[in-house]
Design a protein around this nucleic acid. Structure first.
Length: 568
RNA sequence: CGGGGCGUAGCGCAGCUCGGUAGCGCGCCUGCUUUGGGAGCAGGAUGUCGGAGGUUCAAAUCCUCUCGCCCCGACCA
């Protein structure tokens, strides 16, 4: 392709709206443009990358025995009402009505639609296992879309759904998708980690997230160096403390702590370590108020709290509610003397004695509080996020923390959807059974963005060969006849050899071409200049390393084909 | 939804405090020169100042409402 014939609107300056690297570079390289918040148009270069990733995904899905289908984007509310998700999915579901006032939504995921298909078409165990996938645009009206393709409201996703006769079969399907995901992200050139995850809104029993390790990631993962354990922080289970004898309890002691409310302030003011402070978080759990006790240096995990309390809705109480229920402003709540509020504490609190708590009075804290003497704890449980240095849940070692971008997620669904939608088949004994399901997603655009997060430098993108929009950027530095002729001949021979070439045929100065080429990030640049041609060579530059080789034009096609084959 | 910020030429921004001709850089168009890391000179085009209403002789500027966007927190591929 010639640059002059492609829409590649590169930007010299960073657009004001973009914060993270991948978003900035995709805009600057002319790959995407925003149409509305979280909704993007893919320009030719961006689309080429998307298509490359899709191709890899297709190949691996097919290899794993999944079949491609294409479900509708619009789906009727009835299906969603069957599983309860019409209400449960909430505001994130893009809803609309047709001319007859019937409710529809734009699909955020397709468990309902595929299960509806399968319950109609699958009668016998002989038709199972079945695994269908699609690559399609999804819609989720995210509270806060951000970071370009990283979190859009409209995005391209590969979603697959497996149906098996039994739990054993479902596990095999799950494993086969898990393995396929490994191959996909490896082929895309990403550094990633599969971690244990929570199954969230989709539901089901077990799940893994595929996390691309990058500082801009919105997720935190914990892992051990030996690789024996890796999980989303939200998910990582922390065991109860080993029963060690508590210190001798000192008398309870009230102290003035004027104007210091946060753990850091209290710690500094009273000269105690944050881990000797217990913070009391007042939550609204469904209709009732609950005090959650967490050690000062820990953070609460709302997913875990929801599970322990058995509620769906959980939010921190507002200032007024805290004032009313504890008698003091936020920052001074404590478990001692608290009325009409359940008290649930994290395991770590159980191992503490003589700690600091709020006194439910303005500017007052207690020193040397003890849970077994001064107040009643209804239950101790795992309520906090794992953090660096915690003991690993299973096996040996301590946990480390890293930031990650979730590019894929695999779930064991069990019979959650087949039951609620009555998707059954007849087993060999003629008995009706519910199909055992799994579902598997990959964010295609997010995968592209993640690659940029991991592969870029100050000048632009460094695409890995398999997903690069072009393999080679051909850069003739003059408009003279013999340079143009050399470019044409290289373009022809490379194209014939199956190499994808972007030919910068614009009448621009060398600097402009170099800078655009660095920005766009094709793995190889071919520079054709008068000087080189006079010596019978052109320059082959590897974008990533900057390494330059001067090579006679006639051996270029073979050289580049070999390089690309090695890295594909 | 809560908190913070921004909407002025294609892009990046100034002008707003203190009302009075709408500006700068880059890009774009024409010509000449130049041509290995974002050229020089000369000439030129481009604005409902996000929108609506109000105050005023006069509004980008002051007031009210509204829409959009970005950033920080609770959701997810």
């Amino acid at each position: 392709m010639k640059t002059s014939q492609m829409l590649i609107p590169t930007l010299r300056e960073d657009p004001g709206e973009a914060e993270v690297v991948s978003h900035r570079l995709m805009l600057r390289a002319g790959m995407i443009r925003k149409t509305a918040a979280g909704i993007y148009t893919y320009l030719p270069l961006g689309l080429r990358v998307i298509r490359k990733i899709e191709r890899i995904v297709r190949e691996e899905m097919n290899r794993a025995g999944a079949q491609e289908v294409l479900m509708p984007i619009a789906s009727p509310a009835e299906l969603w009402r069957e599983t309860g998700r019409w209400d449960f999915y909430g505001k994130e579901l893009f809803r609309f009505k047709d001319r007859h006032e019937r409710d529809f939504c734009l699909g955020p995921t397709h468990e309902e639609v595929i299960t509806d298909l399968v319950r109609r078409e699958v009668r016998s165990y002989r038709q199972l296992p079945l695994n269908c996938y699609q690559i399609q645009t999804k819609f989720r009206d995210e509270i806060r879309p951000r970071f370009g393709l990283m979190r859009g409201r409209e995005f391209i996703m590969k979603d697959a759904y497996s149906f098996d006769r039994d739990e054993e079969g479902a596990k095999r399907s799950y494993q086969s998708m898990y393995d396929a995901y490994h191959r996909i992200f490896t082929r895309c050139g990403l550094t990633f980690r599969a971690v244990e995850a929570d199954s969230g809104l989709i539901g089901g029993s077990s799940s893994h997230e595929f996390m691309v390790l990058a500082d801009t990631g919105e997720e935190s993962v914990v892992y051990t160096d030996d690789g024996a354990y890796a999980a989303n922080v939200e998910r990582a289970e922390l065991p109860p403390p080993i029963d060690t004898p508590l210190e001798h309890a000192r008398p309870l002691n009230k102290v003035a702590t004027a104007g210091v409310g946060t753990v850091e302030e209290v710690a500094a003011y009273l000269k105690v370590e944050p881990h000797r402070i217990v913070k009391t978080l007042i939550y609204k759990a469904a209709k009732e108020l609950v005090a959650i006790l967490i050690r000062g240096d820990h953070t609460a995990n709302e997913v875990k709290i929801k599970k322990v309390l058995g509620v769906m809705d959980l939010e921190l109480a507002d200032a007024n509610t805290v004032m009313k229920s504890t008698g003091a402003p936020i920052g001074f709540a404590g478990p001692i003397g608290l009325q009409h509020v359940r008290v649930v504490a994290d395991y770590a609190v159980k191992a503490l004695s003589n700690f600091v708590v709020g006194a439910n009075e303005v500017d007052i804290h207690y020193l040397d509080a003890n849970w077994n003497r001064d107040f009643a704890v209804e239950q101790f449980a795992d309520l906090r996020n794992a953090q660096a240095g915690d003991a690993a849940p299973r096996g040996t070692g301590t946990l480390k923390v890293a930031k990650g971008i979730e590019v894929g997620h695999v779930f064991m669904l069990g019979t959650k959807y087949s039951r609620s939608m009555n998707a059954t088949f007849l087993d060999p004994q003629g008995q009706e059974q519910f199909a055992v399901m799994g579902c598997y997603g990959i964010g295609i655009g997010r995968t592209a963005a993640s690659s940029i997060e991991q592969n870029h430098d100050a000048k632009g993108i460094l695409w890995p060969v398999p997903i690069a929009p072009f393999h080679v950027h051909l850069l003739p530095l003059s408009q003279s006849a013999h340079v143009t002729q050399a470019a044409q001949s290289l373009y022809d021979s490379l194209t014939q050899a199956g190499v994808e070439v972007l030919w910068d045929d614009r009448d621009e100065r060398a600097g402009v071409k170099f800078n655009d080429a660095d920005l766009i990030g094709a793995p190889y640049h071919l520079v054709i200049g008068e000087k080189g041609l006079a010596q019978g060579t052109v320059e082959l530059k590897e974008r990533k390393t900057g390494e330059v080789k001067r090579i006679p034009p006639d051996v270029i096609p073979a050289t580049i084909s070999a390089l690309i084959r090695d890295r594909a």
